[in-house]
């Protein structure tokens, strides 16, 4: 009786393990690349930085912001995906698949088209508003009923629509073409310290907001009546949850372009690990999972074809699409 009222263990046992795993991958991301360095060099760069050493400069000035950006967008997209899945009651909702990322990307290039090259803050503002509009649209699409499987289809159509406008704008604009060729398919090639410093606060705030409203969202999704009985304000909770989605997706897109599938895979793995625990616990687990997966995908993209690199979005699609197909298979079998 008492155990059903009291919250269960507040920190899931898998969390420290996951964080340790992410730390290992993070170190690996700093060491591996077009040129591999040992961890000794990392230590030196950290303790006694030699400004003339080229290898240390590569690690500190290029790989470090990039790895931090991977951590940030991985966690942000995981939160965004999980929140979207909770709101639509649909395990297939993902900011990439439903077109929220594509909407944010569209807003960014629209800003580029009308205003010319923008600073990080303006980019963030455009990405945020685009993601917010798309998230509301997704919620409307899902809210109109039609079962688990309509949302991804309508979302894919919407996403391809946004992305074709994105490529149109980018191709019409020779300056943008060179700069955004890789960003368009999702890549960390543009991630540098300035961009990260401007956009990470937005993403982190989105993650915190997501964690903070997770319990209310969960109650609300049990039924609006029940939620109201618990003293919730359905409209307010919903708009906070949508804001969390827009902030996390917007920050991720402004840094790395429309990256898909992290929001699908990380929450799915987290749900398995959390085995029935609440939305908040699942979200806590999804953050390191998403961050670690994104880092791994970025390492793979830089390492597989070095010195050339495979953009993050492509690596993730190659891993994520089969996962998506397996998920659909299991959902379809379970449904009847």
């Amino acid at each position: 009786m008492l155990s059903s009222v009291l919250p269960q263990r507040s920190v899931p046992p898998a969390l420290p393990l996951l964080c340790a795993g992410v730390a290992v991958v993070f170190v690996a991301a700093l060491c591996l690349g077009a040129q591999d360095y040992g961890p000794g060099l990392l230590w030196q760069a950290l303790v006694a930085r030699d400004p003339k050493d080229l290898a240390q400069a590569v690690v500190v000035e290029m790989r470090l912001p990039r790895a931090l950006a991977a951590l940030m967008i991985g966690a942000a997209l995981a939160v965004s995906g999980l929140m979207m899945q909770a709101l639509t009651r649909n395990p297939l909702a993902d900011p990439g698949l439903t077109g929220v990322n594509a909407g944010a990307a569209l807003a960014v290039v629209a800003g580029l088209w009308f205003l010319g090259p923008m600073g990080s803050a303006a980019t963030a503002a455009f990405a945020l508003s685009g993601a917010a509009a798309a998230a509301v649209l997704v919620r409307l699409l899902a809210g109109s009923g039609g079962g688990t499987l309509r949302l991804p289809l309508a979302g894919a159509a919407f996403a391809s629509l946004c992305l074709s406008v994105v490529s149109f704008v980018v191709l019409m604009n020779p300056e943008a073409r060179n700069l955004y060729r890789f960003w368009m398919v999702g890549s960390l090639a543009l991630a540098d310290t300035g961009r990260l410093a401007a956009l990470a606060p937005l993403g982190l705030a989105g993650i915190c907001l997501g964690l903070a409203v997770s319990r209310q969202v969960e109650s609300l999704m049990l039924g609006e009546d029940l939620g109201a009985a618990l003293g919730l304000h359905p409209g307010r909770v919903l708009s906070l949850a949508l804001a969390a989605i827009a902030m996390t997706s917007g920050a991720a897109v402004a840094i790395a372009g429309p990256v898909g599938f992290i929001g699908l895979i990380a929450p799915h793995l987290a749900r398995r690990l959390a085995s029935g625990a609440g939305l908040g616990v699942t979200m806590l687990l999804a953050c390191p999972l998403g961050a670690g997966l994104t880092l791994l995908a970025d390492i793979a993209g830089r390492w597989l074809m070095r010195p050339a690199e495979l953009p993050l979005g492509i690596v993730l699609a190659m891993i994520g699409a089969p996962v998506f197909m397996l998920l659909i298979r299991s959902i379809l079998r379970k449904e009847d």
Binding site: V185, G260, P311, M318, P322, I328
Partner: peptide, 20 residues
């Protein structure tokens, strides 16, 4: 509907493969 949804995944996979 199963064909349509699996096809959605396939489209993303093949698009990424072409780009790679």
């Amino acid at each position: 509907r199963a064909v349509v949804l699996q096809g959605l995944g396939l489209a993303l996979l093949a698009g990424a493969g072409t780009e790679a």
